[in-house]
Design a protein around this nucleic acid. Structure first.
Lengths: 342, 342
DNA sequence: CTGTTAGCGCTTTCAA
DNA sequence: TTGAAAGCGCTAACAG
């Protein structure tokens, strides 16, 4: 068990040929005789040769690797987005480095430096809660490395992004509640420095306005998107001096927490309170039967974003065109199984 | 916005010094005068220099990168294990490449090749459901790249691993049910080609034996660890011609599904059926109040495994010593909040 | 179809 | 304390 790396030179020497030929053969170049190729391939597998991508990539100044930055890989939405990203990337011959910012700007910054040092060909990013602008992406811009935001994006400058129409979705969600006879509608919101939550809030407000329902500050309950925030939010909501009979929840994780607590304190959904929340294809079955959802496909967003990025990488002409792709959402109304059960 | 990479040579040329000195300075070598260092660092930041790790790693034959292979990053347990891994790795100056096998042996194989090609310094792996042995790790062995199994491991040859005592934990879990007056105890099991599920099954069986409870084949219900399997399993369990009043669930994801379905069909826990299942620090609050858990710390397992791996990497003498570290679990009994509520 | 040569950007002897 | 030179393993002209 010796540690020596087998290189193309070793193979070349053994076979009494030149290492360039070995290189060509291993890259399946048409400019090598089939017989030589066979010989080389056989020897390579025999010796357990494994190309050194560091050397190869260095030489080619191309890594076929994409960096992906998400706040947290375990979140339903991001997990499904990653599924879409990986699928698309692999199909196009790209590898993917998945990194989590854990909602920290500093970590996001560090990750970008690492990706830069590793010469990724492009970056997909969904920003952390702490991130207020794209200053820390300067390195990418300077080095002309294309990047695409997905879902959580920056609004501080023009960039390529793949998002849903948060305003519209929130508007529709709130409208749906109103049409379901909800008259007092709370909004569990997210960090207001994130565009998506800003827009969801705006959509909520606009719908109220349209139907002449007075907006009340105290019905908007914000949080940092942890599951236990759901419980906290519900408690705040229940402590109001009047009864809330509708809830638009801007985040799925919070929604899960909220629904669980509502069940626990025996508040019936949707009879006591109707809920509309965001969801996606991988979300836990907890939430599914409980409420009407705005289906936001992480898989699709991931796929679309990756295609856009790879496009930017390969078409130099597209590289500097900033475009926004809006992925459709749809409202899925569910027969609440909670009605019978709870 | 030109695309030219800034190299140490550029900096050297501008400053009229040699690139070796620049290299040394940027690596904070003590063999460079502080004045020169300052000059170089200033110029480097001014130009937005960013080291090319491909070149650096190639030269050093060392990447300070660990490969991590898990079945699925979105699973509670693996997400928390990854948290532990990253924390430990970063602390020691290592980066981490996270890969998911999606329970496919073929993908696992491909991932290993990619990691090999990228010359990672070591690998942490929790095997897929399809993986029956460690044949596909041959490349790692051959190249003398250390690897450590965590949680899901192979038993087909001696390897380093960080695991819990599955037999003991399962035994204790089942014993607990018996002491809680459960007389007919079902076991929701996992794929029997995985050691951990084999051992959990053995522990279950051994406990029954100790207390002279007859073992029944049909009480052992296996699945492929999806959340909806929980529901399927419960249905199978309920279709038995006798009443089951205890359940030892060998997997948390299945447990979540099972508990939800049990709630749905209004079976009271623990009155109608007492449950013990595995859990860990990040698990959804869904499961928490419902049952007694065997607390299996992903964070700790990740941390321990990473330390072991880094140790193997740096101490050549340890490299070929295979050791098994058993991380303690503990049984956490919960006051079931379901009792009052449901 | 194959060989020669140069060099990707960095680190690391060895020398001064 | 700095410089010169070699080379990590690979690919890509260019030549033949």
């Amino acid at each position: 068990m010796d540690n020596t790396e087998i290189t193309i030179h070793d193979i070349a020497e053994i076979l009494g040929i030149n290492s360039s030929t070995v290189s060509r053969a291993l890259n399946n170049s048409p400019r090598v005789a089939q017989k030589t190729k066979d010989k080389i391939l056989e020897k390579a597998t025999e010796l357990g040769y494994q190309r050194n991508d560091l050397a190869s990539n260095l030489r080619k100044s191309k890594t076929f690797t994409l960096g992906v930055i998400v706040p947290r890989i375990s979140r339903h939405f991001f997990a499904s987005a990653i599924a879409g990203i990986e699928e698309t990337a692999f199909k196009e011959g790209y590898n993917v480095i998945i990194c989590q910012s854990l909602e920290s700007l500093e970590r996001e910054q560090r990750i970008i430096n690492t990706l830069l040092a590793n010469r990724v060909d492009g970056v997909l990013i969904s920003i952390s809660m702490e991130t207020k602008n794209d200053d820390h992406l300067f390195g990418l811009k300077q080095r002309n490395i294309p990047y695409v935001f997905f879902d959580r994006h920056c609004n501080t400058s023009i960039n390529s992004k793949v998002v849903i129409d948060d305003f519209e979705a929130a508007f529709r969600a709130t409208e749906h509640l109103i049409q379901q006879k909800s008259t007092v509608i709370a909004h569990f919101s997210g960090p207001q420095n994130l565009e998506i939550y800003k827009n969801r809030f705006k959509g909520y407000k606009a719908a109220l306005e349209k139907y002449s329902i007075p907006f009340k500050e105290e019905l908007v309950i914000s949080s940092s998107l942890m599951e236990h925030d759901g419980e906290e939010n519900v408690k705040k909501m229940l402590s109001l001096p009047y009864k809330v009979n509708g809830l638009f929840c801007a985040n799925d994780v919070v929604a899960i927490g909220a629904i669980q607590y509502l069940k626990k304190v025996q508040i019936k959904m949707p009879d006591d309170i109707a809920i509309v929340g965001f969801s996606n294809e991988t979300i836990s079955s907890v939430i599914e039967p409980a409420l009407t959802t705005i289906n936001q496909s992480g898989l699709e967003i991931g796929t679309v974003a990756t295609n856009l990025l790879i496009n930017k990488i390969s078409n130099a002409s597209n590289k500097n065109i900033d475009e926004t792709i809006i992925v459709k959402t749809n409202l899925i109304e569910r027969k609440s199984s909670l009605r019978e059960v709870n």
